[in-house]
């Protein structure tokens, strides 16, 4: 839908010749700084990190104050609990805790007497990222010429599964060439590649990604299997980044309205390939 809208919009802009884009300065209202919590636990070995920071005004610089001296605790439904230590300003780390599949984790943060908490379940079954197939494609409507990859994995039947894929090319986030002459307008991969099995439950999953690779590129993929609440967070986070939806709103967080950000428990599998 967005592609169609963009094409029609692009056409109308081109056709009207003088249609335009320009930067305007708006008088925006602002709110007091809000707490942002990013917490992740996985079935990989620790340490796991929780990051605390604050929001800033829209026209301020992109530097976000970190929040120190908070009490950060992660516990699970098997009676384990650990208080995290502040490793660097705003970054809190575990030392012993190990994420276990099937357990539900709880993050508690206490700042200036205010308490924030969220829960997330580490999915029970690990799903291996079976294979990555790279193939060369001619130029078409959808793509420039180049090497593209498709991933395959088996989705278990009768379970709702939610996935997020993280792509790294030569150890960095990929930059998409948007055909804009100005390279500064090219888009960096936000790595919010999401999939669920709503239409493909129990099938061999086939997910084609739009990264245009060169010979010799090394591709590292990380697949997160996430629970529903994390998936909803990433999905609505992507809506915010893409400017989609009827009226923009903050992503659906498992901290509800109390804090921004999320706490997620993920099962991780990896795979790599070199383009040749």
């Amino acid at each position: 839908m967005k592609a169609l809208k963009n094409l029609i919009l692009g056409f109308l802009l081109a056709y009207s010749l003088t249609g335009c884009r320009d930067v305007i300065v708006l008088d925006l209202s602002d709110v007091p700084p809000r707490l942002v919590i990013e917490g992740v636990i996985t079935d990989e070995p620790g340490p796991y990190y929780v990051k605390l920071s604050h929001s800033v005004k829209y026209y301020d610089d992109n530097t976000f104050p970190s929040l120190s001296n908070a009490v950060v605790t992660i516990s699970d439904d098997a009676g384990n609990m650990e208080v995290l230590s502040e490793e660097s300003p705003g970054i809190y780390a575990t030392s012993d805790l190990q994420g276990v599949r099937g357990r539900t984790y709880r993050l508690d943060v206490e700042v200036d007497g205010e308490k924030y908490s969220a829960e997330s379940t580490l999915p029970e079954q690990q799903i291996p990222l079976d294979s990555i197939v790279v193939e060369f494609k001619e130029e078409s409507f959808f793509e420039d010429e180049g090497y593209y990859f498709t991933i395959y994995f088996n989705d278990p039947e009768n379970v709702k599964n939610y996935y997020r894929l993280l792509v790294s090319v030569n150890g960095e986030n990929f930059i998409f060439n948007t055909d804009d002459e100005d390279e500064s307008n090219w888009e960096e991969d936000d790595n919010l590649w999401l999939a669920d099995d709503k239409f493909t439950d129990g099938n061999l999953q086939e997910i084609e990604l739009p990264h245009n690779l060169n010979l010799g590129d090394s591709l590292d993929l990380k697949m997160l299997q996430v629970d529903r609440s994390s998936y909803d967070y990433f999905r609505t986070l992507k809506d915010v980044l893409d400017g989609q939806g009827v009226a923009p709103a903050n992503p659906l967080s498992n901290f509800e309205d109390a804090a921004l950000g999320y706490f997620g428990a993920f099962s991780v599998t990896k795979n790599s390939v070199v383009v040749k």
Partner: peptide, 25 residues
């Protein structure tokens, strides 16, 4: 009537717009 951002914050190194009241702008 639209919803403009009232601030911004950082998630995974991405700048995310912060929203408040619906259609307040």
């Amino acid at each position: 009537a639209v919803t403009y951002p009232v601030g911004k914050y950082d998630i995974e190194g991405e700048v995310i717009n912060l929203y408040s009241k619906r259609n307040a702008d």
